[in-house]
Amino acid sequence: MANIDITLNVNGKDHRVAVRSTEMLLEVLRDRLGYVGTNKVCAQGICGACTVIVDGKSTTSCLALAAQFDGARIITVEGLEHDGKLDPLQEAFMKHGAVQCGYCTPGFLMSARAFLNDNPHPTRTEIIDALRGNICRCTGYKKIIDAVEDVAARSAR
Protein backbone atom coordinates (compact mmCIF):
# COMPACT_ATOMS: atom_id res chain seq x y z
CA MET A 1 0.00 0.00 0.00
CA ALA A 2 1.42 3.35 -1.01
CA ASN A 3 0.79 5.20 2.23
CA ILE A 4 4.03 6.89 3.13
CA ASP A 5 3.90 10.51 2.15
CA ILE A 6 7.18 12.01 1.12
CA THR A 7 8.33 15.15 -0.64
CA LEU A 8 11.13 14.88 -3.12
CA ASN A 9 12.77 17.84 -4.71
CA VAL A 10 13.80 16.63 -8.12
CA ASN A 11 15.84 18.94 -10.31
CA GLY A 12 14.53 21.90 -8.36
CA LYS A 13 10.91 20.91 -8.42
CA ASP A 14 9.00 19.63 -5.39
CA HIS A 15 6.92 16.49 -5.75
CA ARG A 16 4.63 15.10 -3.10
CA VAL A 17 4.18 11.42 -3.55
CA ALA A 18 2.86 8.51 -1.50
CA VAL A 19 5.16 5.52 -1.66
CA ARG A 20 5.18 1.91 -0.54
CA SER A 21 7.65 0.92 2.15
CA THR A 22 9.63 -1.32 -0.17
CA GLU A 23 9.56 0.96 -3.16
CA MET A 24 12.93 2.04 -4.49
CA LEU A 25 13.82 5.63 -5.21
CA LEU A 26 14.53 4.57 -8.80
CA GLU A 27 10.98 3.28 -9.27
CA VAL A 28 9.49 6.44 -7.83
CA LEU A 29 11.60 8.65 -10.07
CA ARG A 30 10.86 6.63 -13.19
CA ASP A 31 7.38 5.24 -12.80
CA ARG A 32 5.65 7.89 -10.73
CA LEU A 33 7.43 11.11 -11.46
CA GLY A 34 8.39 10.40 -15.06
CA TYR A 35 12.14 10.96 -14.75
CA VAL A 36 12.88 8.04 -17.04
CA GLY A 37 16.35 9.25 -17.99
CA THR A 38 17.74 7.24 -15.10
CA ASN A 39 17.98 3.63 -16.21
CA LYS A 40 17.43 0.41 -14.31
CA VAL A 41 19.73 -2.51 -15.02
CA CYS A 42 21.03 -4.85 -12.34
CA ALA A 43 18.97 -3.93 -9.26
CA GLN A 44 21.91 -5.15 -7.17
CA GLY A 45 24.02 -2.03 -6.91
CA ILE A 46 26.70 -3.34 -9.25
CA CYS A 47 26.26 -1.50 -12.53
CA GLY A 48 25.67 2.11 -11.48
CA ALA A 49 23.23 2.83 -14.32
CA CYS A 50 20.72 4.19 -11.80
CA THR A 51 23.08 6.68 -10.16
CA VAL A 52 21.52 10.00 -9.19
CA ILE A 53 22.78 12.80 -6.96
CA VAL A 54 21.05 13.08 -3.57
CA ASP A 55 21.92 16.04 -1.39
CA GLY A 56 25.13 16.46 -3.32
CA LYS A 57 26.26 12.85 -3.21
CA SER A 58 26.09 10.15 -5.84
CA THR A 59 23.53 7.56 -4.81
CA THR A 60 22.47 4.16 -6.08
CA SER A 61 18.77 4.74 -6.62
CA CYS A 62 17.95 1.04 -7.13
CA LEU A 63 19.23 0.34 -3.61
CA ALA A 64 17.50 3.21 -1.88
CA LEU A 65 14.16 2.93 -0.11
CA ALA A 66 12.17 5.92 -1.30
CA ALA A 67 10.49 6.27 2.08
CA GLN A 68 13.84 7.24 3.59
CA PHE A 69 14.26 10.19 1.24
CA ASP A 70 11.59 12.58 2.45
CA GLY A 71 12.87 16.10 1.86
CA ALA A 72 15.82 15.02 -0.24
CA ARG A 73 17.17 17.17 -3.06
CA ILE A 74 17.71 14.94 -6.02
CA ILE A 75 19.38 15.66 -9.33
CA THR A 76 18.80 13.29 -12.21
CA VAL A 77 20.32 13.41 -15.68
CA GLU A 78 17.41 15.58 -16.77
CA GLY A 79 18.53 18.14 -14.22
CA LEU A 80 22.08 18.52 -15.49
CA GLU A 81 21.21 21.13 -18.07
CA HIS A 82 20.30 24.66 -17.11
CA ASP A 83 18.33 27.11 -19.25
CA GLY A 84 18.87 24.96 -22.29
CA LYS A 85 22.61 24.92 -21.69
CA LEU A 86 24.18 21.53 -21.25
CA ASP A 87 26.48 20.62 -18.39
CA PRO A 88 30.13 20.65 -19.49
CA LEU A 89 30.18 16.91 -18.85
CA GLN A 90 27.35 16.39 -21.32
CA GLU A 91 29.25 18.47 -23.87
CA ALA A 92 32.43 16.53 -23.25
CA PHE A 93 30.70 13.16 -23.50
CA MET A 94 29.44 14.19 -26.94
CA LYS A 95 32.75 15.60 -28.10
CA HIS A 96 34.85 12.67 -26.96
CA GLY A 97 32.61 9.89 -28.19
CA ALA A 98 31.94 8.71 -24.64
CA VAL A 99 28.44 7.60 -25.61
CA GLN A 100 27.58 4.54 -27.64
CA CYS A 101 24.39 2.72 -26.75
CA GLY A 102 23.88 5.32 -24.05
CA TYR A 103 22.24 3.12 -21.44
CA CYS A 104 25.01 3.60 -18.90
CA THR A 105 25.51 7.26 -19.82
CA PRO A 106 23.16 8.92 -17.28
CA GLY A 107 24.74 6.92 -14.47
CA PHE A 108 28.25 7.85 -15.55
CA LEU A 109 27.28 11.50 -15.91
CA MET A 110 25.86 11.62 -12.41
CA SER A 111 28.78 9.78 -10.83
CA ALA A 112 31.19 12.08 -12.63
CA ARG A 113 29.25 15.23 -11.76
CA ALA A 114 29.13 14.42 -8.05
CA PHE A 115 32.80 13.55 -8.15
CA LEU A 116 33.91 16.72 -9.94
CA ASN A 117 31.80 18.89 -7.65
CA ASP A 118 33.78 17.44 -4.78
CA ASN A 119 37.14 17.25 -6.52
CA PRO A 120 37.26 19.63 -9.51
CA HIS A 121 40.89 18.95 -10.40
CA PRO A 122 41.46 15.23 -10.11
CA THR A 123 44.22 13.15 -11.62
CA ARG A 124 43.30 10.59 -14.28
CA THR A 125 43.82 7.84 -11.72
CA GLU A 126 41.39 9.53 -9.36
CA ILE A 127 38.83 9.78 -12.16
CA ILE A 128 39.14 6.09 -12.92
CA ASP A 129 38.75 5.30 -9.25
CA ALA A 130 35.67 7.50 -8.98
CA LEU A 131 34.03 5.65 -11.87
CA ARG A 132 34.77 2.19 -10.48
CA GLY A 133 31.11 1.61 -9.70
CA ASN A 134 29.75 2.17 -13.20
CA ILE A 135 29.72 -0.52 -15.86
CA CYS A 136 29.91 0.27 -19.57
CA ARG A 137 29.85 -2.57 -22.06
CA CYS A 138 30.35 -0.53 -25.22
CA THR A 139 33.19 1.95 -24.88
CA GLY A 140 35.94 0.24 -22.93
CA TYR A 141 35.84 3.32 -20.64
CA LYS A 142 38.66 5.23 -22.32
CA LYS A 143 36.56 7.90 -23.94
CA ILE A 144 34.43 8.33 -20.83
CA ILE A 145 37.54 8.94 -18.77
CA ASP A 146 38.87 11.28 -21.48
CA ALA A 147 35.65 13.27 -21.32
CA VAL A 148 35.74 13.67 -17.55
CA GLU A 149 39.42 14.56 -17.67
CA ASP A 150 38.72 17.20 -20.29
CA VAL A 151 36.08 18.86 -18.10
CA ALA A 152 38.40 18.77 -15.12
CA ALA A 153 41.17 20.36 -17.16
CA ARG A 154 38.90 23.14 -18.38
CA SER A 155 37.39 24.09 -15.05
CA ALA A 156 38.95 27.14 -13.42
CA ARG A 157 41.41 26.54 -10.68
Binding site: S21, T60, C62, Q68
Partner: peptide, 21 residues
Protein backbone atom coordinates in the same frame (compact mmCIF):
# COMPACT_ATOMS: atom_id res chain seq x y z
CA UNK B 1 21.52 3.49 4.83
CA UNK B 2 19.21 0.98 3.19
CA UNK B 3 21.72 -0.50 0.78
CA UNK B 4 21.65 -4.08 1.97
CA UNK B 5 17.97 -4.06 2.94
CA UNK B 6 17.03 -2.74 -0.51
CA UNK B 7 19.07 -5.44 -2.11
CA UNK B 8 17.16 -8.06 -0.10
CA UNK B 9 13.84 -6.60 -1.25
CA UNK B 10 14.96 -6.50 -4.88
CA UNK B 11 15.80 -10.18 -4.66
CA UNK B 12 12.55 -10.88 -2.81
CA UNK B 13 14.58 -12.32 0.06
CA UNK B 14 13.00 -10.40 2.94
CA UNK B 15 9.42 -9.80 4.05
CA UNK B 16 9.43 -8.28 7.51
CA UNK B 17 6.26 -7.00 9.16
CA UNK B 18 7.91 -3.77 10.19
CA UNK B 19 10.72 -1.70 8.76
CA UNK B 20 12.34 0.50 11.35
CA UNK B 21 14.08 3.41 9.69
Amino acid sequence: GGVVVSSLFNQRLASPAVLVD
